[in-house]
Design a protein around this nucleic acid. Structure first.
Lengths: 165, 165
DNA sequence: CGCTTCTTTCAGAAATTTGTGAAGTTAAGG
DNA sequence: CCTTAACTTCACAAATTTCTGAAAGAAGCG
């Protein structure tokens, strides 16, 4: 690392990572702006950026930042901070908060389970279709329990390897 | 259950389940037509329908069926069958095949891991951002291993409760 | 209270996605 | 081979989504 680079960040390298990781998130179904904003926060030095910084770095309007951040906050993937006595907001990824959120398909899972249970009732538990749907439901019930155990194991694993970082 | 209903399926009840479950899949990011086709197959008596039957039941064009089925086959959520000596194709959900597919975010996971690894390299493993991204990567590496173990447990659980159905 | 700074909301232009009809392709069966 | 039944591809119209500039809304600070 040259002296000129020390303590400095290569804006080009950051941007390339931001765009390529965001592209993967988009491919997996996330909207474009939330994906870019999230990737930008993830690759920021402090893990937190202001609206203006995000707009500048990603070349998007304040409106776009606002929409993206609202979405991410709803999904519990970032949190909003406000330095006391300032109008300026800061958006932050907590190292641990966001992958809790990613496995927190809980809301999705719950709705699927509800819809499937309803299907079993409608079609009749003793019909072929009813049985097929009941098995699908059993799968999601199973998954539901497993995921929370998995996250417990991850927390232990993480603490061991990364400390309470 | 009245005599008239015995052995018969209430088309209205089926349709209501199809549309409501499909809506949940759409909300979770799946495209509309694949979601409807999939829900229709899931709630069919035999677990398999022809293109014409799907078009009729869902009121969609052959082109729409074709597109939806191509997508579902790529995702390994349905398989195509052809009765020998017929031009007519049949699309089937195998009870076990498709939830294997649903947890098979493997392709997605792999791409995320690749993008994150690249990010650590670009930003530097010893920078704050690099460390944050490395931890995220560690999470996905962990998840990757856990999911296959979870599916092993599911198969055991399933066999116990449903037999080899 | 009013000025200033930041964020949010909103209407609309632009881009993208979706589903169709119609033409094209494949393969069975005479 | 030719016909015909079935599936696929393609261009386009319609619907939806996305992002912006502009206006409106909040909140610190004098």
């Amino acid at each position: 690392m040259t002296e000129a680079m020390a303590g400095r960040r290569d804006a080009g390298a950051v941007s390339e990572f931001v765009e390529s990781f965001a592209a993967q998130l988009v491919e997996a179904g996330m909207q474009r702006m939330p994906a870019r904003v999230f990737a930008a926060l993830l690759s920021s030095d402090t893990g937190a950026l202001t609206s203006a910084e995000l707009g500048e770095q990603l070349q998007i309007s304040p409106a776009a930042v606002s929409g993206a951040v609202r979405y991410l906050a709803q999904q519990h993937m970032v949190s909003r901070e406000r330095e006391p006595g300032s109008r300026r907001e800061r958006y932050r990824v907590h190292s641990d908060q966001w992958y809790e959120a990613i496995t927190n398909r809980e809301a999705v899972l719950k709705r699927w389970q509800y819809a499937l249970r309803d299907g079993v009732d409608r079609l009749g538990a003793e019909t072929p279709a009813g049985r097929r749907i009941a098995e699908t439901l059993a799968f999601f019930d199973f998954i539901d329990g497993e995921i929370s155990q998995m996250m417990d194991r991850w927390r232990a694993h993480r603490e061991k390897h990364f400390g309470n970082g």
